[in-house]
Amino acid sequence: MRRLAFTLAALCAAAPAAFAQDANDTSAAALISKFAAEAGITADAETGKAFFLATQSGGGADTPSCSSCHTADPKATGMARTGKEIAPMALSVNPKRFTDTAFVDKWFGRNCDSVLGRECTATEKANVLAYFASI
């Protein structure tokens, strides 16, 4: 466990280099406003939480939920099906999140299709980002 903690710390330090999340052309707040405006709603973190934790149908058999990879706790380190670690989603522990529009769009595109078999709606995106920003 100690070794794991150390590895995690090292990985977190290396994370910005590992992922091209350096465009710095947006922020969680800006994305939430954008998607909420698109959907004509006020973003709601509680609804986002329910969406994040829900077991969905329509996607891949191995990925029924966002929490399949990101775990049920967005503050925790997740894991892809390949054993590769995924840095936490919660903005409070990972402030580098949601700062690159192309990166966010790419992963919503992939992950929503893997989990739901379709794109996420602007409502779902606004709410789930509000959840990640709220905890």
């Binding site: 595109g109 992950n111 299709d113 893997s114």
Partner: peptide, 10 residues
């Protein structure tokens, strides 16, 4: 890549 071993990797 759209169904890459059960995941979307486009």
């Amino acid at each position: 890549l759209k169904d890459h071993f059960g995941e979307n990797a486009t």
